[in-house]
Write a protein that binds this DNA or RNA. Sequence first.
DNA 1: TTTACTTTTTGATATAGGTCAAAAGGAAAC
DNA 2: GTTTCCTTTTGACCTATATCAAAAAGTAAA
Lengths: 186, 186
Amino acid sequence: MITDAILKFVPFSPDELNDILSHFEKEYVQKNQLLLKEGQVCNKLHFVEQGIGRSYYLKKEGKEVTQWFFGDGNFMSSVDSFFQENPSFYYMEILEDSILYSITKVKMDLLLAKYHKMEKFIRLLSIEMFSKIIHKLNAVQFQTAKERYDYMLTEFPDISHRVSLGYIASYLGMTQETLSRTRKND
Amino acid sequence: MITDAILKFVPFSPDELNDILSHFEKEYVQKNQLLLKEGQVCNKLHFVEQGIGRSYYLKKEGKEVTQWFFGDGNFMSSVDSFFQENPSFYYMEILEDSILYSITKVKMDLLLAKYHKMEKFIRLLSIEMFSKIIHKLNAVQFQTAKERYDYMLTEFPDISHRVSLGYIASYLGMTQETLSRTRKND
DNA sequence: TTTACTTTTTGATATAGGTCAAAAGGAAAC
DNA sequence: GTTTCCTTTTGACCTATATCAAAAAGTAAA
């Protein structure tokens, strides 16, 4: 599955692909485990082979705000922390027992330097994430609670029923109560 | 100035840099001119040597919503349209008489294929934009009108006084009236 | 310097969604 | 099958911001 996720962007040869995959490590991570805390520099990029993760941050009052969900078949990381080596603004958490393929920053840098095509792959991946974030921004900034929930259903069709209401509500920028009421009236 | 903006990310040699710059074209664009309409595929990436641009879209009711401002020293494009060759969701407009350096998609692809470091440059540029968008998202999603305006002042210190109130208000996801009142009470 | 046009401010009122509190429903633990 | 704990729903009330409308200020054109 990670193979498809990579080849979708760039046609690596079988040899190249094997080399790349050999830099990833398979990890079994349990529910509720933190991959990263706020303030740490994120030194791994993960691929969610199976499971769900999320990134979130804490508001001053201590409330958690979900920033993104990462379902099966997606790369998961605190992207700007990973690539720019800044302290992460986010926590990264696994929400279901999951299988990940993870690569360290050091190994990623080796691959980026070794393969021109690897740079291209990461460029295209970054641009795809960029698109998705913009899509969310437009949904969240100008739409009603109902429309925001509809956006959620299309962006994360599978995830919407696997994570708790509170996480989704904060992802969409509304309270749990509002989401509950919104859902009820269809 | 475009030189600095490129070297900031990747240390190209003088020869490489000259080659790259030779693919850009200097353009003088007048106030209120559109660089791109919604639905078109964006086939240019611009660098704002001097001036201001913005991207915006129309809501169903026809209201303009500013999506981003591009001030001096920044690259300007409907990024996902340019790189993924999708129809753009946005209009791109110049707000002041401006000087741009522009490169076509075809030429950009040549450079990306020719130089490994060019891929790296665009990757880093993409990630930087990604970071900025996330920053906006956090500001817009959970902050009060006052806090959003403060975010604007830090993200675009120079621009805040050069563009009309209505553009800024829609950028921040509030009405013009609210922004006017917010500004007044400091 | 008057006229016309655009942008910003001010005022009055309406509303979506927030807040606080408690009840109901589910899932796991004993 | 209770008990405990956590999540979701419901209810009553409140507030920030939207909306609608008009006045004021600013800018450009004649």
